[in-house]
């Protein structure tokens, strides 16, 4: 009678021990993983920062070039810019309409943030941020044109462009970026 009860007790205590380790592991593992990731982040940060210092200016120039090329292609295809901000009051030959939108999240590199901070000390216009945001805006407007053409719309009327912050003002951490969002109503002419 004693033996089975003993073994079962031992089994129970082993099970409890195992469970404690299991729970401990589950509690600690996320922190271990996070600390590992942050260590990697901290170690690689200087290298990525220097790379961004070298590459980010060039990246923006490439983006501007790319957007300009695509924009001129669209103009050549359509003969004019399909976007307009007015409500289509004067158009009477519209057969079909629907919502189109495009968006993108753009952020300055940390090197540009540093330049911007220095610029901020002296005041005046901070050209580097203006460049980043206006490039993003041009890119999103081009995407809107491409989306509208892909959906088969002839024109896009009542275009609105919104900008929203990705990080809340209160938090210092997180990604520094701005979301640009453009939307409008695609229309199709009946003739």
């Amino acid at each position: 009678m004693e033996l089975p009860s003993n073994t079962s007790e031992r089994g129970l205590s082993m099970a409890i021990e195992f469970e404690i380790y299991y729970i401990l592991f589950i509690l600690v593992a996320p922190f271990l993983i996070f600390s590992l990731i942050w260590t990697i982040f901290g170690l690689s940060y200087p290298f990525v920062f220097v790379w961004g210092m070298i590459a980010s200016g060039k990246n923006i120039e490439n983006m501007v070039e790319d957007v300009n090329r695509r924009e001129s292609e669209t103009r050549k295809l359509r003969g004019k810019d399909p976007l307009s901000t007015i409500d289509g009051g004067y158009r009477h030959n519209v057969s079909d309409s629907g919502l189109v939108y495009a968006s993108g999240v753009f952020g300055p590199s940390h090197w540009h943030l540093l330049i911007g901070w220095f610029n901020n000390l002296f005041g005046g216009s901070i050209t580097i941020f203006q460049k980043v945001i206006s490039t993003g805006r041009a890119e999103v407007m081009q995407r809107l044109r491409e989306n509208a053409i892909a959906a088969g719309w002839d024109d896009v009327i009542n275009v609105r462009i919104d900008t929203a912050d990705m990080t809340p003002q209160s938090s210092k951490k997180g990604v520094k970026g701005v979301e640009v969002f453009a939307y409008g109503t695609g229309i199709k002419y009946s003739d």
Binding site: I37, F41, S44, Y45, V48, F49, W51, G52, A55, S56, N59, I60, M63, Y101, S103, G104, V105, F106, G107, P108, S109, H110, W111, H112, V132, G136, E139, M166, G174, V175, K176, G177, E179, F181
Partner: peptide, 26 residues
Amino acid sequence: KDIFALFKNIVGGELTQYTELLQEAR
């Protein structure tokens, strides 16, 4: 994806993960 975006943010440019996120949300 958050961590990847954090890395991408150091170099600057478009954060495609968040573009995707907002597109889905919209």
